[in-house]
Design a protein around this nucleic acid. Sequence first.
DNA 1: ATCATATAAATCGTGCGCGATATGGTCGCA
DNA 2: TGCGACCATATCGCGCACGATTTATATGAT
Lengths: 146, 146
Amino acid sequence: MMDMPAPSLDDMLCFAVYSANHAFNRVYKPMLDRLGLTYPQFLAMMCLWQQDGQTVGQIGDRLFLESSTLTPLLKRLEAQGLLTRRRDHTDERVVRLHLTPAGLAMRDSLPELQACILEASGMTLEGMGDLTRQVAALRDHLRLPA
Amino acid sequence: MMDMPAPSLDDMLCFAVYSANHAFNRVYKPMLDRLGLTYPQFLAMMCLWQQDGQTVGQIGDRLFLESSTLTPLLKRLEAQGLLTRRRDHTDERVVRLHLTPAGLAMRDSLPELQACILEASGMTLEGMGDLTRQVAALRDHLRLPA
DNA sequence: ATCATATAAATCGTGCGCGATATGGTCGCA
DNA sequence: TGCGACCATATCGCGCACGATTTATATGAT
């Protein structure tokens, strides 16, 4: 029987994804620094720009994050004056998030941000859309129960 | 002039990569738990399985990580008895990493690990190789100086 | 009405990841 | 010989991310 050759890091999809994620982080950082956001905070803001008034759990479902990650992150956004956190009147277990005017206004920086990312990626819009779908499909398959 | 439509999270390559990375982490976790490794620790071990005796800086170049990340991680691997950290005799600034027999033996788990990942990804080997190259090319382009 | 179960967030401890800085070693050049 | 520039690693503080647990609220069965 032939053994499979031991794969090197460069052949491993998981490492490509791991290192590409870090590379994105580094590209975003200087731009987000000027907004006073971290990258995960930016993703949470994206959720709320898309739909205001979501709960912590809904943001978690969207971003695939636990409340143990989100609660402190959202408190920091609240401390920055970008959103409010209030218990829902009809279900006191739930915390609803609402953008402040400052939080909403920050959305205006999005187009420029997107343009920078597109340029840094060195891809076309179509190429990005295509790769996005492939990677999202991989993610969704990995998330299936074993 | 028409504005670009504000993209949602699902259209963003950065989020696809971010969430796919977390999804990989979650797939690896139960398997790595049995080895007593974290995912970044596993990546460091991959480097050393490929070439023993590398320096901290070489591992950092390979994984795109800083010494501030690697030093504590490598100390934990040393504490587990998987490798040794020794200053180089000819250049005392440099720390060289050498696998112990236990660290080397752990490599035997690799093939099974790879097989599990392949299955969890729901892809063919060719499909994985193809996507790996696309994502690595993206990473390398993002790493170019602006 | 009561109590068991379930659910949503929050809290805690550990490890990763970075930027800024510190420490100590090397090398070239006066 | 000694000093200044550079270099490799280590340390520190902050924020993310998780699993395990806790707290508070809601729901359902009897």
